[in-house]
Structure formats: C-alpha cells, structure tokens
Design a protein around this nucleic acid. Sequence first.
RNA 1: GGUGGGGUGGCCGAGUGGCCGAAGGCGCUCCCCUGCUAAGGGAGUAUACCCUUAUCCGGUAUCGAGGGUUCGAAUCCCUCCCUCACCGCCA
Length: 428
Amino acid sequence: MLDSTFFRINVSETAEKLMARGYQLDVSLVVDLETQRKSLQVKTETLQAARNARSKEIGLAAKRGEDITSLRAEMNTFSAQLNAVKAEFETVNAKIKDIASSVPNLPHDSVPIGKDEDQNVEVSTWGSPRKFAFDVKDHVDLGEALDGLDFKSAVKISGSRFIVMKGQIAKMHRALAQYMLDLHTQTHGYTELYVPYLVNAESLFGTTQLPKFGDDLFNTNPATQEGIGMSLIPTAEVPLTNMARDIIYDEADLPIKMTAHTPCFRSEAGSYGRDTRGLIRQHQFDKVEMVQFVHPEKSFEALEELTCHAEQVLKNLNLPYRKVILCTGDMGFAATKTYDLEVWLPAQNAYREISSCSNIGDFQARRLKARFRPTGAKKTEFIHTLNGSGLAVGRTLVAVLENYQLEDGRIEVPAVLVAYMGGLTHIG
RNA sequence: GGUGGGGUGGCCGAGUGGCCGAAGGCGCUCCCCUGCUAAGGGAGUAUACCCUUAUCCGGUAUCGAGGGUUCGAAUCCCUCCCUCACCGCCA
C-alpha cells in the first residue's frame, strides 16, 4: 500500500511511475475521492465533537435534576444527521481503501523500464556451463532411472504437479535445505524460524497476496461467517514478514534477519501447459526463505546483501547462474526492485529462475503497521521489508541432478553436500 | 469435545452507564537532593488520523474484533476471535 500523500500531493508523478509498470491509475477518480474524504472527515469529526459536548451537558443537567426530555429529542435528530455523514464518510473511505490496496508499489529509479521479462537486464553471470561429452538427460529421466523421482505415484495420490521422492534423491533434497539453512544461520547472520504453514487472511493482506492474488492460493474451507478460512502459505515470506505486524521496534533492534525452510503451496492458476514436465513448477515445493526488516535508509544496501546470500548458495554448489534485474513490467506487485537469480539447466540449455530477491520498501510495512522508533524520536516510522529465496529447494535439486550428471546416469554429490549425505559421493 | 474463568496503556492491575484515554503500582526518561552507593522528592511516559506553514494548542477514534441498545458505552446486549484452568482425547 502506498502512502496516501502519493495520491494527494504527487498524483500525476505517481500515475506516471505506475504507468511504467503497466498500471493505469484513474487520477481524477483518486483526486475526487480524496477531496471528498477530507471534507467528510472534517465534517464527521466536528459533528462528533459537538455530540460529545452535548451529551456531557445532558449528563450534568440530569445530575442537577433538570428535565432532559427535550434535550434528548433534540439529540436524536442530531444523531441522525451525524450517522448520515458518517455513513457517507465510510463509503468513501472504503472506496479509497479498495483502490489503495490494488495499486502496486512504485519502482525504484534504478529499475529499468520495460514491458515484460524480455526487457529484464542481465547484471552478471557466474561460472560457465559445463561441457558434456555425452547427450545430457533432463532431471526427469535421471530421477526416474535412479528410482528417486516418482511422478506416477504422485499423480495417483494427489494429481499433476506433485512429486514423490525416494531414497538418495529424497535425502539430497533434504540435504540441500539443511545446507542452505546452515549457511544462512551460521555465516550470513540469520535466525532460523519454524513457522505455521496455514495463515489467516490478515497475514495474507499484510504481505499483499490479498485482496488481488487470492486465486493463486490453496484455501481451507471457509471457517467463518465472512467466508475466509485459512490458506496454505505460497511462500514463507508470509509468516516471516508478518512477524512484524503491529510491532514497534527500537531502532537498535534493526536489522532483523530471519530464515525458514517451509513447503510452499501454489495453485498455479493461469499457468496451464507451462512447465508441465518435471519438478520446475509444482503445487507443493520446498523453499528456504530469507526475510529482513531494516532501517528505511538501508534497504537498497540490504537488497544487495541479501541477493549475495542467495548467490552464495549457488556458488558453493558450483552451479552456474546469472543475475538479472527485473524491469518495471516484470516486477511483482509489492516490489520496488527485484533481482532474479537464474541457474543453468543443461537439459533445457537455458537459465531458469531459482531465486527472487526483492526490496519491498515500506509497502508491506504500511499494511502491517510494522514500525520502528528512531532513537530519541517521538514519531514512529515504517520499517522496510525485504525477502528472497535462498533458494527454491526443488529447483536446486533439478539443477544439481542435471549439472552433476555422469555419462552412466549416476549423479555426483556436490562437495559441500557430501557431509550432509553421510559421506556419500555419488548417487546411483 | 465438555465445564468454568478471563482479554484494559511497555508490563501488572483498578474500573458495572456521563466527572475515564482511563486510578494505583512496576518499568523507562528527565530534573532535584545526596561525598560514592543505596534510599528519597518532583515532572513526564500509548497509537493513528484530522486541523496547523510548522510547533504548541485543539479535535476525532481506539479498553480483543465486529454489530446493537442509549442523548451518552471500557462498563449493558448479541456474534466471533483469542486465552487460562480442570476434565476427556491425543502426535
């Protein structure tokens, strides 16, 4: 959610920036509603002040034993008037909130203008794709041959876009997550959290999955009269970032760095037919997520740092990757700036997204009421939130299988994982 | 799942219709006093929004959430959420 002053004072500038993202803001509507809101609020509060004063008088009169029936009657008509104005005020407010919560964040000035992913800009590449002296297999063929990936059983049990992993491949999947957590907690300074996988609607609103992106979620049955049950988390960003909801931190508490390994559940509505083969796009996948709460002046610095933490995993696994900065048209709803890390997949002969690291600025914090008090200051300020995958575990497994495959179909275990695999150096 | 008790400021805790944004205590901040320490005295100490060039002042809202009754609700009524205790069940 953007600050309301963006809609009052800098409307045209705001609209222009949103245009770069492909969002058209109805400027005159916004200005009109804001003007109405302002005058209705003043009106309402003035009437409320009058009502409070009169009520007090009635109380005193009654105490003196005076007759108050006429005063009461007078107040009844007054209240009717107040309620009418109040209702109008609330209607306008609701409209503004609707608009405000569907407007995406403003891109940072350093973000390239562009329409879609084709206009993303490569920042750097690391490592060079290995040359294979044989025909490479993709992770599906490799995993099935090793009896480690069982798509058939998953379809039977749940449906498409699910996986059953077995044996050493299941173990490697676990090893990858463990390794990532250890790296982030032991050398990158994150605190490990274990969090709920089912979250309520307030949390989803706070991290901006709601109200716009509810279709991407798996929901439990409506549990309340409002019809909103709990939802399976699409990413650990939701529980982690909501840790800050309704909190006022001391300035000295910042930065706060958290990581968690969780499954993620996505309905993948609207991606029918894309990545239908293999583990790339699943309804359920594991991810190690990093989240930071930082001082507003430090958030872009923190984005660089957080992205490096994700890169470090790829480097330590010796997986070639490239880093791209997303253009305005390809960024997520809440982000001010996003780096994607794309890992090399030999079988696809392409780089594929394996991590996405974003600075959200104060966009989530405003919804979350996540604030800090600058040392010595009276007023609170919104913190900035950041999140990034470090990394998507399933896709990392894919990358390891494909990049570490041997001609005979066995998989070499990356050096840093050997200890996590009980000393095993090869699978198969 | 059953029965009963609760949700009030950073924390504890008083408050059953107006004088309550809220006593008192703790904590914290500042000041005074005191060789040091300890003790003592005084003042201050929620959040958001509105008004305001800004500050001060002032206004509005918030006592778990939402709705209702009333001229007026922390206080009465309804619904929901959370929590504690005991019982049952149980990874």
